[in-house]
Design a protein around this nucleic acid. Structure first.
Length: 570
RNA sequence: CGGGACGUAGCGCAGCUUGGUAGCGCACUUGCAUGGGGUGCAAGGGGUCGAAGGUUCAAAUCCUUUCGUCCCGACCA
């Protein structure tokens, strides 16, 4: 491709409303343009990258035994009503009516559609297991679209759905897909981790997320320093401490702590460490109108996902209002404590080993110190893991300690079970002639998000640094002052043709622009390999080579150029 | 949806407080020079100042409404 026929829509200025590197660079490099909030047009250069992600994904899905289909983006409400998600999904589901006043939605995902397909098309258990997949545009009316392509309202997703007769069969396909996902992200040249995940609103038991590692990632992931353990912090288990509770040393005393509410304030006021403090949060209980107190160590954070899974707590998790707290505890939120608290208490494991701790006195402006279990208050009826892990916690598998990193979720695989197939009566007659609900798995890759994530992970102050497999072009051919030298024109044209013949995806920059301008453009759009041609080089029969991710340049004899590049790209 | 901010040329911004009919940089067009790191000089083209209503002799500027966008919080590939 020649730049004279493939305009690079690069811009020097950073658009004001782009916050993160990938968003800024995608706009500046001319990969995308915004149409409206969360809606983007893919320009020719960007589309080339997107297609590469699709291609690799498609190849690995085919290899894993998937059958490609294409389902409508517009979906009838009836199917969503069957699973109850028409009501449950909330405003993120973009609903609309057709001219006959019938309800439809723009598909944010396709479980209902695929389950409908499966129940109609899969006739015999002998066809199982079976996996369909598609690469489709999804629509989610995000509350707050942001970060460009990273969290847009319309996005491209590869979603796959598998159908099984047995859990063993599902597990088998799940394992195959796990490996297929690793293959995809390895081939894309991205640093990633598969982590144990919460299955969220989609449902199901076993689930892994695939994260591209990047400091700007929206998700925190926890992994072990010693073992392969990795989990989303939402899910990462905090083990019960193995240390014993110390013997009480202090007497319990009630101290006046005017206007000290947060852990930080109370600790500073009383001159104690947050680890010696106990944090009491009040949430709604599962029973209507009931409240539950959650106890955490002062330096720990409540993990809402863990808490919400407990039977006694309302789902979704809701914090009690100040009025409710006042009615139940007789004080405001900053002064609550478990001593004499008249409501049900759930304690995190870590608070059970505390001795001589501080907590609210259930009276505005007062805290207790030197509090001890059994002596001053009974042990709580329920002890559970309700906190978010922190750096240095022991790894749940017993090997090593937890360390935290940021990640961008680009893939998620779930063992759905029968959540959708049961609701939609996707039954099949099994070997014994009995009706059986099919078991399902589902597997997603955020195809368009991968592009943004790749940039987030691979860029510098000059622009994007594409991994070779994602690059819109593999090589940039940059002749200097092409218009001034017929000799150079001939040589450049020949080299360009040779590269095309060798199957190299080359961008021939034949614009009449200055060297610095050209180099800046090529670096901004992130072409991995750059070949500079000049009259000077022709005198010595060499070209200058530079890799985007390295500083040094090399002189390459022209006859060896193609071979050299091929070796570099192998 | 709650909290904050912003809409002036394709992009980035000034002008608004104190009304007087719009400006700068980049980009674009043309010419000359330059020619290995976003080059210089000169000449151009491009804006119903987000929209509607109001106040006024006069509104980008003041008032009201409305639409859009971005940032901070609850959702997710």
């Amino acid at each position: 491709m020649r730049t004279s026929q493939f305009p690079l829509n690069t811009v020097k200025e950073t658009p004001a409303d782009a916050e993160i590197a990938s968003h800024q660079l995608m706009l500046r490099a001319g990969l995308i343009r915004k149409l409206a909030a969360g809606l983007y047009t893919w320009l020719p250069l960007g589309l080339r990258v997107l297609r590469k992600v699709e291609k690799i994904t498609r190849e690995e899905m085919d290899k894993a035994g998937g059958l490609e289909v294409l389902m409508p983006a517009l979906q009838p409400a009836e199917l969503w009503q069957e699973t109850g998600r028409w009501e449950k999904y909330g405003p993120e589901l973009a609903r609309l009516k057709d001219r006959h006043d019938r309800d439809f939605c723009l598909g944010p995902t396709h479980e209902e559609i695929i389950t409908d397909l499966a129940r109609n098309e899969i006739k015999s258990y002998k066809e199982l297991p079976l996996m369909y997949y598609q690469i489709q545009t999804k629509f989610r009316d995000e509350i707050r679209p942001r970060f460009g392509i990273m969290r847009s309202r319309e996005f491209i997703m590869k979603d796959a759905y598998s159908f099984h007769l047995t859990q063993e069969s599902l597990q088998q396909t799940y394992n195959v897909m796990y490996q297929a996902y690793c293959n995809v992200f390895n081939r894309l040249g991205l640093k990633f981790r598969a982590v144990i995940a919460d299955s969220g609103s989609i449902g199901g038991a076993v689930s892994h997320e695939f994260h591209v590692l990047a400091d700007s990632g929206e998700d925190a992931i926890a992994f072990s320093t010693e073992s392969a353990y990795a989990a989303n912090v939402e899910k990462a288990q905090a083990l019960a401490p193995d240390t014993a509770r110390a013997q009480p040393q202090q007497a319990m005393s009630r101290l006046h702590t005017p206007n000290q509410h947060t852990i930080e304030e109370v600790c500073r006021f009383l001159d104690i460490a947050p680890q010696q403090c106990l944090k009491t949060l009040i949430v709604r209980g599962a029973e209507a109108g009931s409240l539950v107190a959650l106890l955490l160590r002062g330096d720990h954070e409540l993990n809402e996902i863990k808490a919400e899974k407990l039977d006694t707590i309302a789902t979704p998790l809701q914090f009690a209002t100040e009025a409710e707290i006042d009615a139940a505890c007789g004080c405001k939120p900053g002064s609550i404590g478990p001593v004499g608290l008249p409501i049900n208490i759930i304690a995190d494991y870590s608070v059970m080993v505390l001795a001589d701790f501080a907590c609210g006195a259930n009276e505005d402006g007062y805290h207790l110190t030197g509090v001890n279990w059994l002596r001053d208050l009974p042990e709580p009826s329920q002890i559970a893991d309700i906190r978010t892990v922190v750096e240095g916690d022991p790894s749940p598998d017993g090997l090593g300690r937890i360390t935290l990193a940021r990640g961008i979720e680009v893939g998620h695989i779930f063992q759905l079970g029968t959540k959708y197939s049961a609701a939609m009566k996707a039954d099949i007659v099994n070997e014994d002639g009995k009706n059986q609900t099919m078991i399902m798995g589902c597997y997603g890759i955020g195809v368009s998000r991968v592009v943004a994530a790749a940039i987030e992970q691979n860029h510098d102050d000059k622009g994007i640094i594409w991994p070779l497999s994602l690059a819109p072009f593999q090589v940039a051919l940059c002749p200097m002052n092409l218009h001034k030298s017929e000799r150079l024109q001939a040589a450049a044209e020949q080299i360009y043709q040779d590269m095309l013949k060798a199957g190299i995806e080359v961008l021939f920059d034949d614009r009449k622009v200055r060297a610095g301008f050209m180099f800046s453009d090529i670096e901004l759009i992130g072409i991995p390999h750059r070949v500079v041609l000049g009259d000077r080089g022709l005198d010595t029969n060499t070209a200058e080579y530079k890799a985007r991710n390295q500083e040094a340049t090399m002189e390459i004899p022209l006859p060896e150029l193609i071979g050299f590049l091929q070796a570099r790209m192998a």
